[in-house]
Simulated scan of single mutants.
Amino acid sequence: MNRLLISLLLLFPSALAAQGWQLQTSDDGSYFAGFLNAPAGVEMSLVCGERSPQGLSPQETGNMEPDISAPNTLILYIGMSHIPAPQSEFKRQDVIIGTGAQGYRIPELIWNELFGTWEARIAAQDALLQSMAASPGFEIITNEGREPIPAAGFATGYDQLLGYCQSMFESSGISWDGTPPEPQEQSDGGVDLRQVAEGTIVEGCNGDATTGENYLLSGDIDGDGIEDVVLDWREVECVSAPARPFCGASMCSADVFISSDYPVTGQPKNLLALGVKLIPLNNGNTGIITGGSVGQCDADGRNPCEYLFYWDGADLALAP
């Protein structure tokens, strides 16, 4: 389920469950999401989402506007029937959720102009959410007034949402607590380099990211019969700024995880590239082709503007 559908659910609350807060889940193969939806007439949802463990590309499913949350973080959506649409300021930090005698300020709310709703990122175990779960009712408090919100089903749904989010994140190779997962051994005793690369993205982005169709490439680069993995940072966009931490004006890093080398060094090989692709070599191994800048290729006499790297038994070597 994508942001457009969430927006429709907020705009047309009759589509939600009629009684109490309820959990809904979605996994189209490219992205999964969990939604704790408020009862009919209340435009609120708590959401988590990330890449699906099924590993399909967004191009295959058409899901180009997924709900993506950082590990151990939930997205809070509040519709404009509860908080009016902004006239000039598109961020708010003055909205409070009251739970009995306690009041909790919502972290910065940002106006999503495309879908007409407010959204905030909140730690999954934030005191605000825990107090909401322990309260028989709560209310939204703004400068415009106070509005009671029913709490029936919230506590149960909140627990179910956290369980689902943690399970799905970890099934996708992303630690729910935000730390890169420990590499798991494959059946052949080697390290699962795809999982290592996914953990590298979480660590490099300090949270979640969206990825292109070819963000991970795989092939037997070192000739040991075990899959090696190339992470192309050009195909990764971090949700939190900076969006592309390992890219310059045109070139991006490419991390190469070699099955015979990574367990020894604990580090990938790093290339600077304007795009990456893999090709078969005459010796049966897989080579890495990187694109270069026009100035670089002109200086090196490269036409076409490409560089071929191969494994020489000890390191990645540049073919003449």
Rank of each mutant, 00 (worst) to 15 (best):
S7L: 10
S7F: 05
L9V: 08
L10Y: 04
F12R: 10
F12P: 02
F12C: 07
S14P: 04
A18K: 15
Q19V: 11
G20H: 09
L23H: 08
L23N: 09
Q24W: 13
Y31P: 02
Y31V: 04
A33Y: 02
L36G: 02
N37Y: 03
N37V: 14
A40K: 11
G41A: 12
E43V: 03
M44P: 02
S45T: 13
V47S: 04
R51F: 15
G55M: 10
L56H: 04
L56K: 15
S57A: 13
T61K: 05
G62F: 02
P66D: 11
D67G: 08
S69K: 05
Y77D: 13
I83E: 00
P84C: 12
P84D: 07
A85C: 10
S88R: 15
E89P: 01
K91M: 13
I96G: 02
I97N: 01
G98H: 06
T99M: 09
G100D: 14
Y104W: 15
R105A: 12
I106A: 00
L109V: 07
L114M: 12
T117G: 12
W118L: 03
I122R: 00
A123Y: 14
A127I: 11
L128E: 09
L129H: 00
S131V: 09
S131Q: 14
S131E: 05
A133C: 06
I140L: 12
T142K: 01
G145R: 14
E147P: 05
I149T: 08
P150Q: 11
A152D: 09
A155P: 00
L162K: 00
Q166S: 09
Q166R: 09
S167D: 08
F169S: 00
E170V: 10
I174K: 06
I174T: 15
T179C: 03
P180G: 05
P180A: 14
P180E: 15
P181L: 10
E182Y: 03
P183D: 14
E185R: 13
E185W: 04
G190E: 11
G190P: 03
D192P: 09
L193C: 03
R194C: 10
R194G: 12
A197G: 03
G199F: 06
I201D: 04
G207F: 13
D208C: 07
G212Y: 06
E213K: 15
L217Q: 10
L217M: 11
D220S: 03
D222N: 14
D224C: 08
G225Y: 11
G225A: 10
I226E: 11
V229L: 02
V230L: 04
R234C: 05
V236K: 01
V236Y: 01
V236E: 00
C238K: 06
C252V: 02
C252E: 02
C252A: 05
S253R: 00
D255V: 05
S259Y: 09
P263W: 15
P263N: 06
P263D: 07
V264G: 06
L272W: 12
L274N: 12
V276T: 02
I279K: 03
P280K: 09
T286Q: 10
G291A: 07
G291R: 00
V294C: 08
G295C: 06
G301H: 06
G301I: 12
N303S: 13
C305I: 09
W311D: 07
W311F: 13
G313A: 13
D315N: 14
A317R: 14
A319I: 04
A319P: 05
A319T: 08
